[in-house]
Every structure is written in structure tokens, then in C-alpha cells.
Simulated scan of single mutants.
Amino acid sequence: MEDDERRPTYAELGKRAAHLLADMQTGGEILHPVVNTTRKLASHFWGFAWMKHLARCEESGLALAPGRSLLRHGCVLDLELAPGTVHGKVMGERLYDIRIDLTPLDEERMDAIRHACAGKIDSHISLLEGKLDDALLRQLCDPDTGLLPAPEEWRMSCTCPDWSEPCPHAAAAVYAAGTLIDGDPSLLFLLRSVTLDDLVGKAPEIASAEDFDTDSLSRTFGIDLDQL
């Protein structure tokens, strides 16, 4: 293969991404770039659970490693999570648009999750920090019984010409979603269309200070409990 036909390295793609990002932002586009250069990829419970789940998917043969490299080299120029959907822009040989739709949790599975959580979660903060009973955590982190989406629940599309499933750009978006969840675990519940009160239950008429310790939540994740 001639030099001018070779695939660019991840470092070269990262440089292209940085230049394009600067140009797009200068032009007034509002983007939400995601970069994760850490070795473990996550440092909080739900982010770690997401990354561990992806690692198991890789061990089962799902080709996600190229996406991890794109993320680490700053190629995810935009990513947003919404109920049931991930949208993004990822730099490959050019900039590609990504969309990932998740199969909604069916009512039977959601009822089982509510039943398992009933009376076992004393606050929003405990849920967001993953400070729960081990058996409950195992259920919530199991892709068959909990909140993490199994590979067959992902429907990925990308404007690139790569026919692999997933393509590297969609894989980068999946890993980038985990990075966002690590920084703000409420995004996992948003993505799965689950409200915190679905699992914690209705707050008592007179709530305890622990339940609404906004300072604690802000220190841990930099988010405001009043917005959840």
C-alpha cells in the first residue's frame, strides 16, 4: 500500500480532531467533546460498572478496542445522552455522525428492578454512588436483569462507510458515554429512562438531611440534586 493510501494513526486523527474542533467552535457550533486518557477509564461506581461491562463484551468478541483508542486521542468531538439515545460526532478519516438507540427496559424487567430495590435504597445519593447491598448491585449491573444495556440492545448507526458492527466510531461513542456517566451517574438513569424515584421511592414528607445533602453530591460528582 502506498504511503498516501495508508490509514492515519490515532495520533494523527487526534491532531485532525483538535484542529477541526477549534474551527467548529470558532464558527459558533456548540459541541460537547469527550476525552478520557486515564488507564482505568472510570473512577466512580457506575462509570466503572459501564467500563467493566464493555470489557466483558470485548472478551466475548465485540470489537470495541478501536473506539477506546479514538476516545483517548480526543476524537469524540461531540456526545449527548438522552432517554434511550446517544448522539455524537467522531473523527475518523473524516467527521462522522453517530446515533445509538437502546431497546427500552420492558415493564417486566422494570417491575423486577423496582421490587428488588424496594426498601433497600435510603437516598438518591446512595443510588448514585453505588453504596448499596452487594446482591442488589449485582442485579442492577447485570445486563440481563439490570440497567446496563446488553450488546443486543444497542442499535448503532454511523455515517462512515465501515460495515463492521460496531464500527470504531460507534464504539468510541459507547466508551465516551461511559466517561460521561462516570462524571455524572444520573446520566445512566436518564439514558435508560429511569427516574431516581423509581428506585428510591417517594421521599417522606419530612426528608432527612442525608437524603438531600446537596453539598455531598456536588463534591462527589459536581451535579445538583435539585436538577435530578
Rank of each mutant, 00 (worst) to 15 (best):
P66E: 05
L70G: 04
L81N: 10
A82F: 13
G84R: 14
T85K: 15
V86R: 04
V86F: 07
H87L: 13
H87M: 09
G88R: 11
V90G: 02
G92Q: 11
L95Y: 07
I98S: 08
R99Y: 01
D101S: 14
D101T: 13
L105I: 15
E107F: 02
R109G: 02
I121N: 08
I121Q: 07
I125G: 06
I125T: 11
I125V: 07
L127K: 13
L127R: 11
E129R: 12
G130H: 14
D133F: 10
D133V: 10
L137C: 05
L137H: 03
R138K: 15
Q139A: 03
Q139I: 11
L140N: 08
C141A: 13
P143V: 07
T145R: 15
G146M: 03
L148R: 03
L148V: 00
P149D: 01
R155P: 01
R155K: 14
M156P: 06
C158L: 04
T159R: 13
T159Q: 08
W163H: 08
S164D: 15
S164N: 15
S164V: 01
C167A: 05
H169K: 11
A170V: 06
A170S: 14
A170D: 02
A171T: 03
A172E: 04
A172M: 08
A172P: 06
A173T: 05
Y175K: 02
Y175I: 02
A176I: 05
G178M: 09
T179D: 08
L180W: 05
L180Y: 05
I181A: 06
I181K: 09
D182V: 02
G183E: 09
S186T: 14
L187C: 09
L187E: 02
L190H: 12
L191K: 09
L191Q: 09
L191I: 04
R192L: 01
